[in-house]
């Protein structure tokens, strides 16, 4: 392929990487050269090209955004004071990382959101299974749960601060609160939408209720429960950063807000970047976990 031919003399490490990943790279046939050596070279080049092409396709939009970010302030399209070029933000990020401040803030944020998120999953999954299982309970609580879910968690932040102070408790609590609803509601609907023919099957073989729950309801609910958990993962970080902007002495939300107050604009953007990196990484982790638990859905 053309991309492959252009990259025939790629540096050695990349070639090795391509060979290692040869199995996953799209199959590419090299251009027909006159000798076997050239053909091999062409093939390797093709593989590298395929791999680079794949990576390029997946990162092109992100790279374009960064390029725009870099160029716009330099070309004077936006005020460089309010939007410094990406390279300056990257330098600021590196400095924050080097002096340990970024790690401290990230750790503070991660501990809070992980605690709130973890507690929410631990509470909401069993509760959701229970509520979904007992139809009358689900019908009774349904409207109430809808009200809670549709009340923006952040609107309740002042209430949390009022009741629990501005310390860790209120921050973990609001994350816990916000994460509970997507997990709970998805779990309830997962239990209630289990394929009725499977329930009929279970009845026809006289499966006792506990076994029915363990062997049919629970595994059938896993995919939808995980959807809820992934939604909660995004919510955990979203809510926490907002909570940290109100009365906190550490955390990424504090870093962002505090940098803005002190007019340390590159540092502010560095904080924002860190938040989105953590968000993406967390989501990827949950996706990987979901794949592991629902491998029966896809081949392989």
């Amino acid at each position: 392929m053309s991309a492959g031919a252009a990259l025939t003399d790629a540096p050695a490490p990349e070639t090795a990487a391509a060979e290692r990943h040869g199995g996953t790279a799209p199959r590419v046939t090299g251009p027909r050269g006159p000798g076997p050596a050239r053909r091999l070279l062409g093939l390797v080049g093709g593989l590298v090209g395929g791999l680079v092409g794949g990576v390029l396709r997946r990162t092109a939009a992100v790279l374009a955004l960064l390029a725009l970010w870099e160029a716009a302030p330099r070309l004077g399209f936006v005020d460089r004071i309010f939007l410094p070029p990406f390279s300056e933000v990257a330098v600021a990020w590196w400095e924050l990382l080097a002096d340990g401040q970024l790690l401290d803030d990230a750790r503070a944020s991660l501990v809070r959101s992980a605690t709130g998120f973890g507690l929410a999953v631990l509470v909401a999954v069993p509760l959701g299974l229970l509520i979904g299982w007992y139809r009358p309970v689900a019908e009774l609580l349904g409207p109430l749960l809808e009200v809670f879910r549709n009340t923006a968690a952040l609107a309740l932040l002042p209430v949390f601060v009022l009741l629990l102070g501005i310390g860790e408790t209120s921050k973990v609590s609001i994350v816990l609160y916000a994460c509970t609803w997507p997990v709970l509601l998805n779990t309830i609907s997962a239990v209630r939408t289990v394929d009725p023919t499977l329930l009929k099957l279970a009845r026809s073989v006289n499966l006792p209720p506990w076994r029915l729950f363990q062997r049919v309801i629970l595994p059938a609910s896993v995919p939808a429960v995980f959807t809820g958990i992934r939604l909660a993962g995004a919510v955990a970080i979203l809510v926490l950063v907002a909570a940290e902007m109100v009365g906190a002495k550490a955390g990424l939300g504090f870093l962002i807000n505090n940098s803005q107050f002190n007019f340390a604009i590159p540092q502010m953007y560095a904080g924002i970047l860190t938040v989105s990196l953590i968000g993406v990484a967390f989501n990827q982790l949950l996706v990987a976990l979901e794949r592991r638990f629902t491998s029966w859905r896809t081949s392989g």
Partner: peptide
């Protein structure tokens, strides 16, 4: 009077457990 394993049912929609 109720379901029992002296009768086996085959459903049109197979009713296989997809995770097994």
């Amino acid at each position: 009077t109720g379901p029992g394993r002296d009768r086996g049912t085959v459903f049109q929609q197979y009713a296989l457990l997809p995770w097994r």
